[in-house]
């Protein structure tokens, strides 16, 4: 018997009564198993391909397409796509492909950075609340609820209005705005993650394998780091991907309202904002910027779907 290893995948009949069917499993790590399941989600795989292409394009594109983003050419204003300007030009005759690639860097970077911040803060708050219970938990959850109940957009605008100039002085216009936007967006998106992590902790800490670790004499830190956290992260990663999309939209919104990056720094939202006055004469301008945001957000959401299937703890168990 030592050589035979098998698990029981659950085949659920219509009645919802699981019937265990013995089937063999190759030697696979949970990570590879998740990848196998992710691959089955075709739309997610396609989306991952699209997103990867976009990232590669915005990172390496400017190295190949060496047109500067701010070369003004009044002779080529609002031109439709052509060989000289594959995505056309804007009202100052600036090349849109170059601006889109540059803007993509910022938009995607904002998305990823804001997500990272939301996930890190949320996980920290949720984990502390989940471990401590009692007063600390109540306090942290009160804080979470408080943040959830704040009117976000007005507050966002107020904070940016108040701190934009002082931060610009310290870190320069681009970096200053970047930090501010990331902190503001991330700072308003950690609450769902915190709640999720706390709920996960509450259920996981009652699980037998955590109790086993406790019985072995594992410290609280060890229980959390080795046993609870790795099993709690699946849903957090899924929530995180959705946060990337939300942060990209939030940045676009801010830029569209003229409160994001300064006009000379193109982001997808900023490009869309600038394009809105020329929708009738130069629809391509808005179309490419809007399309890029749409495609990125849609892809990320589908990737999130795929990850949810792949990391579903019920299936990993």
């Amino acid at each position: 018997m030592a050589g035979s290893t098998r698990a029981s995948p659950i085949v659920e009949p219509a009645t919802g009564v699981p019937i265990a069917v013995a089937a063999p499993r190759r030697h696979v790590t949970p990570g590879r198993e998740a990848w196998r399941r992710f691959r089955r989600h075709r739309l997610a795989v396609l989306s991952a391909g699209i997103l990867m292409t976009m990232i590669v394009a915005v990172v390496f594109g400017p190295l190949i397409w060496r047109v500067p983003i701010n070369e003004i050419d009044f002779a080529a204003m609002l031109e439709s796509p052509s060989w000289a300007h594959p995505l056309g030009t804007d009202d100052l005759g600036q090349d849109l492909l170059a601006r889109m690639m540059y803007g993509g860097r910022i938009s995607l970077a904002v998305g990823l950075a804001a997500m990272t911040m939301a996930v890190v803060v949320g996980t920290l708050v949720g984990a502390v609340a989940g471990v401590s219970r009692g007063r600390v938990d109540a306090g942290l959850m009160w804080l979470t609820d408080l943040f959830l109940s704040l009117p976000q957009l007005p507050l966002l605008l107020l904070i940016i209005y108040l701190f934009r100039d002082s931060l610009k002085e310290v870190a320069g216009p681009e970096m200053g705005t970047f930090v501010l936007i990331v902190v503001v967006i991330g700072g308003f998106r950690w609450m769902p993650v915190a709640r999720l992590v706390r709920a996960q902790f509450f259920s996981l800490r009652e699980r037998d394998f955590v109790e086993a670790a406790r019985a072995l004499g594992a410290s609280t830190l060890r229980q959390v780091v080795r046993h609870i956290l790795p099993n709690a992260l699946g849903p957090v990663i899924v929530a995180g991907t959705i946060d990337v999309a939300a942060a990209i939209i939030a940045e676009s919104t801010l830029s569209f309202l003229g409160l994001g990056f300064p006009p000379d720094i193109p982001t997808w939202g900023r490009i869309l904002y600038d394009a809105k006055d020329y929708l009738d004469v130069a629809p391509h301008w808005a179309l490419f910027a809007g399309g890029a945001i749409f495609l990125a957000v849609l892809s990320i959401n589908y990737i999130g779907d795929g990850l949810r299937d792949a990391l579903d703890p019920r299936r990993v168990m």
Partner: peptide, 22 residues
């Protein structure tokens, strides 16, 4: 024992098996 097919047999009689995959 579990996995011997006794439940699946019974569920098949009433076609309570999810098809597909069954």
């Amino acid at each position: 024992e579990s996995g011997c097919g006794k439940s699946v047999t019974a569920h098949t009689v009433l076609k309570l098996i999810q098809m597909p995959p069954g």
